[in-house]
């Protein structure tokens, strides 16, 4: 087949695709948007869910007063959860473990991976503070027996012990363990485990709503051209691309 015909066919295809897409003007789209009625109560609940799940206890309490929205869980439980999270974030892992057990001993009993990560974090903190001997002792007594139970634990343990092998830990291959992000990772994990133990979702609903918006817009793009929201933070409606 000559190039000419290939080009002609491609052009026809492009044209077919362009014509099969429905074009919705801004005026039409705004009419559709206006037909959507959103309950204020539901939006308030969405915001409350975010504040509660993210652990903004004082903010949630104030929002309850200002908006009249009842939080879905007892706000007191947030305080305890945030204390645990803070303890991990500031490197007081022992304290955090004790607090989790005060809250509900089952959380760590039923969650060996989380318990291992907390112990690992504890060892990282010992190394960070230059307590090499204590760190070694801790690795042998607490972490090694767990590593024998589980191959992935063992690999993590070896990675952590490797921190001791380097003079300049800041520039060694496993230096990311000493990074603040490692603490945050562990803290997020504990936070999620506590929420789950309280029969609460570990993630707020708002981000998944935003993801849904991106997903459905991408889906609709295949069939129609319409005013999109491209910037989530301003929620401004763009003009449809024709």
């Amino acid at each position: 087949m000559s190039l000419f015909w290939i080009v002609i066919r491609e052009l026809a295809e492009i044209q077919a695709m362009a014509t099969s897409k429905k074009v919705i003007t801004r005026v039409e789209w705004e009419k559709k948007l206006n037909d959507v009625k959103v309950r204020k109560d539901d939006m308030n609940k969405l915001v409350m869910n975010f504040l509660v799940t993210e652990g903004y206890v004082e903010v949630a309490e104030k929002f309850r007063l200002e908006s009249g929205t009842e939080p879905e869980i007892d706000l007191a439980t947030i305080t305890d959860r945030m204390a645990v999270k803070k303890a991990v974030q500031s490197g007081n892992v022992e304290d955090a473990i004790e607090k989790v057990n005060d809250l509900n001993p089952e959380i760590l009993d039923t969650n060996p991976l989380l318990f291992f990560h907390l112990q690992q974090q504890r060892m990282i903190e010992l190394i960070r503070n230059g307590k090499v001997e204590a760190a070694l002792e801790f690795a042998q007594e607490e972490l090694a027996p767990r590593g024998e139970e589980n191959q992935s634990f063992l690999e993590e343990l070896e990675r952590t012990v490797a921190l001791l092998a380097f003079e300049d830990v800041a520039n060694c291959p496993v230096s990311e363990l000493l990074d603040i992000s490692q603490r945050l990772k562990t803290a997020t994990e504990v936070n999620a485990a506590i929420l789950t133990s309280q029969s609460h979702e570990k993630d707020p609903k708002l981000p998944s709503l935003l993801k849904m918006l991106i997903w459905v817009q991408n889906q609709l793009d295949k069939k129609a051209s319409y005013p999109r929201i491209n910037d989530i933070s301003t929620a401004a409606l763009e003009d449809s691309v024709v």
Partner: peptide, 17 residues
Amino acid sequence: SSLERLIRQVTACFLEK
């Protein structure tokens, strides 16, 4: 609010789809 605009957009997109 921008939250409401986002919810309206999600809803309208699903209906149109």
